[in-house]
Amino acid sequence: MMAANKLHPTVLEMLSIPDSRGRDVVPWHYIRRDFADGLCFAGALLIFYILAAISWKRFRPFAEMSFWMGIVFFALPVVKAGIIYVKCAHLFDPALAACPWPDFDSYLNDASIQMARSWVPPLGAVLAAIFTLLRIRGQRIVQKRAAADGTSHPGVSAA
């Protein structure tokens, strides 16, 4: 997350999205900032998931936790950037750029952004529950096999 915050000013400079800070017109300043946040968090999420995939076999519970925590903490800005990209025509051409939000309030209260705010973080919680249930189920299967074979498997207690 800190890396994403460090890259934010650089990404803002690279984007040629118009900026309208301080005006009561199209809220380009906020659109530009949220889009840059989404790009930075997408990079952080990609690195997060690569590290989780690399550590999957050795540290599986932590890797599983990384997948759902990535959604809880990183996915909302990425989804918001996707919404901005889809809704704004010619986003990277300041002369032709257009968006459906005439002012900041309409941008802030956009139905798709509100839906993303209400659905993306709970998706992480649902994934956490699914991973937990799958892990418990896997441990029970290993315990049953161990009881049937009369052997013990490391890391599984015979309960």
Rank of each mutant, 00 (worst) to 15 (best):
M1W: 00
M2H: 09
A3I: 14
A4L: 04
A4P: 06
N5K: 11
L7S: 06
P9E: 06
T10I: 11
V11P: 03
V11T: 14
V11K: 03
E13T: 12
M14K: 13
M14V: 04
M14I: 06
M14A: 15
S16E: 09
D19N: 15
D19T: 06
S20P: 00
R21Q: 13
R23L: 13
D24C: 01
D24N: 14
D24H: 05
V25A: 08
P27R: 06
P27S: 05
Y30I: 11
Y30A: 13
I31T: 04
I31K: 04
R33S: 12
R33I: 00
D34S: 14
F35G: 11
A36F: 08
D37A: 10
D37F: 10
G38P: 10
A42F: 15
A42H: 03
L45M: 15
L45Y: 08
L45Q: 14
Y49V: 01
S55I: 00
S55K: 07
W56P: 02
K57D: 03
R58S: 15
F62L: 15
A63K: 08
A63N: 10
M65Q: 15
S66W: 12
F67R: 09
I71D: 05
V72G: 07
F73H: 05
A75I: 00
L76I: 04
P77C: 10
V78T: 07
K80P: 00
K80F: 02
G82R: 10
G82C: 09
G82D: 04
G82P: 05
I83S: 11
I83C: 10
I84N: 10
Y85D: 03
V86N: 10
K87D: 11
C88G: 07
A89L: 02
L91K: 01
L91C: 02
F92Q: 07
P94F: 05
L96Y: 00
A97I: 05
A98V: 06
P100E: 06
P102Q: 07
P102L: 04
P102I: 05
P102Y: 03
F104P: 01
D105H: 10
Y107T: 13
Y107C: 09
Y107P: 13
N109T: 12
D110K: 10
A111V: 14
S112H: 11
M115D: 02
R117I: 02
S118N: 13
P121A: 08
P122V: 02
L123Y: 01
L123V: 11
G124C: 08
A125Q: 01
A125P: 00
V126A: 15
A129M: 14
F131M: 07
F131V: 02
F131W: 08
T132C: 09
T132N: 05
L133P: 00
L133C: 12
I136T: 08
R137Y: 12
R137I: 01
V142P: 00
Q143A: 15
R145G: 11
R145Y: 01
A146T: 02
D149K: 12
G150S: 03
H153L: 11
H153G: 00
P154H: 13
V156Y: 09
